[in-house]
């Protein structure tokens, strides 16, 4: 079962990389034509791309190493174990903290979130966990720091945490309210 899933993932990854390479080929071709047509643009385009390439290549390998370490050393069932029962302020912080750990793209988090819901975790904590996973990830913050600066990164981080908590509570409230409205049958 697990092996099958792994193979499926790998096939998906291969498909994705081929698609990216095709797009890259097209963009390269367009760029070459453009730069031949407009020789005066060659210098700014190449200089800009080179600058951004350097900035990326200096941090991406390090970020990838961190991602790899977390993928191997942090077991997936840890999330369910810790988030299943905690509530209150502690639950809020734990949900954000665990979501922020660097462990892969968002679509991995959906099945984990579904398991959490089934196990009776608070809706608001599940939403928080998902949102933290999506946009408060530690490696993301590192890259944001590198490209947009400390002030931008910190301000956006604080605002995001505040509003994500508000959103989680609103969604929980709406879900419960609509459940109650749906009839006593669903509520019990």
């Amino acid at each position: 079962m697990k092996r099958q899933e792994k193979q499926k993932d790998e096939r998906k990854a291969k498909k994705g990389i081929i698609r990216d390479l095709i797009i890259l080929g097209i963009i390269l071709a367009v760029t070459v034509v453009l730069l031949i047509e407009f020789p005066d643009r060659r210098e700014p385009v190449i200089a800009t791309s080179w600058d951004f390439f350097l900035e990326m290549i200096l941090i991406l390998p390090a970020v990838m190493v961190l991602l790899g370490l977390f993928a191997v050393f942090v077991p997936k069932n840890m999330v369910v174990k810790y988030l299943g029962k905690t509530s209150g302020i502690k639950g809020i912080f734990l949900a954000i903290l665990i979501g922020a750990l660097p462990t892969g793209p968002l679509y991995i988090a959906f099945p984990i979130a579904a398991t959490l819901l089934k196990k009776g975790a608070r809706i608001s904590n599940v939403i928080l966990f998902l949102s933290a996973w999506a946009c408060i990830k530690i490696p993301q913050e590192m890259v944001e720091l590198q490209f947009l600066g400390l002030q931008f990164m910190i301000t956006r981080l604080i605002l995001t945490v505040i509003f994500v908590i508000i959103m989680a509570l609103i969604i929980e409230w709406i879900m419960k309210w609509s459940e109650n409205k749906g009839g006593v049958k669903n509520a019990v």
Binding site: I17, L24, P44, V45, F52, M56
Partner: peptide, 19 residues
């Protein structure tokens, strides 16, 4: 896995700021 997309983004940035 991320390299092709990285090059795509880098070239798009170059074109964007250059043109």
């Amino acid at each position: 896995r991320i390299l092709p997309m990285m090059f795509i983004i880098i070239i798009v940035i170059g074109l964007l700021l250059g043109f």
